[in-house]
C-alpha cells in the first residue's frame, strides 16, 4: 500500500515567460506506507519542488499526486486536509515560531485541525517528548530557547498534527555533531514507535546511509533512482557524475577496489564496512 503516489508529475515555474523553468519533468513514483525514505540531489535538482507537491503547497502543471489513494487536486477535495496528513518541516524551521509560548506554538497545527482542547494537549505533550523538549520549556517563550531547542519546538509543531507522512528538509543543518546525532536518533525512534512514513531530505550521505531504507535520487528535475540504499550507493559512478558525493566509507572501499583488492563495495554502514575489511584482511592474509 502506498502512502503517496505520483504519476507523470511535471512542474513548470513562470510558464509563458522568458524565465520559464521546468523544475520537475514527468516524475512517477510510489512511497510505501511506513518506510524511511532518504531523498538526495544537488541544489536545484527538483527535490524541494517535489516535496512541496506531497502536501499540496504546489499544484502540478500536469500529472497527479495521490495521498492515501486519493487525488488531492480532484474537485471537492479540501486541499488543507492534506497538510495534516503530510507534515512538512522546512529547512531551518525555527523561523516559523511566532506564539507567546512554546506550548501554543506546537498547538498551532492541531488547533487549525479543529481538535478539542484535551486532544490538543495530549498531542502537544507527545510531540514535545518525541523531540526531547523538557516539559518545563513548554511555558517559555520560543524566542528564549537555544538554537537547538528552537529547532525541536518547530519540528514538534508539525509532529503534533500526527501526520501519516513526515517530511524533513535538511533537519540537521547548522547543528553541531552531537546535536545532529541526537535529533536524527529521535526521528528514527519516532519512526519506529509511530510506524509513520518518514522522508528525510539531506545533503549528508552519511545520514542518508545510516537512517534510510530506500533512497530517492533527483537529477535535473527527473527521478534518477529509487531503490534500496546499498543498490543506490553501488551505482557510485552515476552518483558522482550528477555532482553528488558518496558516503566517506564507501569512498574508502572504492579506492581499495581500484587498487585491485577483491572488496565488496555494497557495504555502507560503519559496522558492515569494518566487517568487510576484517574479512578482507583475513582472506588475503591466508
Amino acid at each position: 500500500m502506498s502512502a503517496i503516489t505520483v504519476r507523470q508529475l511535471t512542474h513548470i515555474y513562470s510558464p509563458d515567460t522568458p524565465f520559464k523553468q521546468v523544475a520537475l519533468n514527468e516524475v512517477s513514483l510510489d512511497i510505501q506506507k511506513g518506510e524511511f525514505l532518504g531523498i538526495i540531489g544537488y541544489t536545484g535538482s527538483g527535490k524541494s519542488t517535489l516535496i512541496q507537491h506531497f502536501n499540496g503547497l504546489l499544484k502540478p502543471t500536469s500529472g497527479t499526486v495521490l495521498v492515501d489513494g486519493e487525488d488531492i487536486w480532484k474537485k471537492g477535495y479540501d486541499i488543507r486536509s492534506v497538510r495534516f496528513k503530510v507534515g512538512l518541516v522546512f529547512q531551518y524551521p525555527e523561523y516559523q515560531l511566532f506564539e507567546e509560548t512554546v506550548y501554543k506554538d506546537i498547538a498551532f497545527g492541531p488547533k487549525n485541525m479543529g481538535l478539542s482542547t484535551e486532544e490538543i494537549d495530549s498531542r502537544v505533550r507527545e510531540a514535545a517528548e518525541f523531540t526531547g523538549l523538557a516539559p518545563e520549556l513548554l511555558q517559555r517563550s520560543p524566542f528564549e530557547l537555544s538554537g537547538g531547542q528552537k529547532r525541536r519546538a518547530a519540528i514538534a509543531g508539525v509532529m503534533a498534527m500526527r501526520p501519516q507522512v513526515l517530511i524533513l528538509d535538511e533537519l540537521a543543518a547548522g547543528l553541531d555533531p552531537k546535536g545532529r546525532n541526537k535529533i536524527l536518533n529521535q526521528i528514527k525512534e519516532y519512526h519506529s514507535k509511530t510506524g509513520s512514513t518518514v522522508l528525510l531530505v539531506s545533503h549528508s550521505m552519511e545520514d542518508i546511509a545510516r537512517y534510510s531504507g530506500r533512497v530517492l535520487v533527483m537529477h535535473r528535475g527527473s527521478l534518477l533512482m529509487l531503490d534500496e540504499v546499498s543498490k543506490v550507493f553501488a551505482r557510485a559512478d552515476e552518483l558522482v557524475k550528477t555532482g553528488l558525493d558518496l558516503p566517506e566509507l564507501t569512498k574508502v572501499l572504492l579506492i581499495l577496489q581500484q587498487r585491485g583488492f577483491p572488496v565488496n563495495t555494497s557495504a555502507y554502514t560503519k559496522e558492515d564496512v569494518r566487517a568487510e575489511l576484517l574479512r578482507l584482511k583475513g582472506v588475503t592474509g591466508c
Binding site: Q52, N55, L57, R80, R83, F84, G87, L88, V89, F90, P93, Y95, Q96, F108, G109, N112, M113, G157, V158, M161
Partner: peptide, 16 residues
Amino acid sequence: EETNKIMNAQKARGAD
C-alpha cells in the same frame, strides 16, 4: 523570499 518561505511553513501547519 523570506515572506514566501514563512507563508509556506505556516500553510504546512494548516494556516488558512
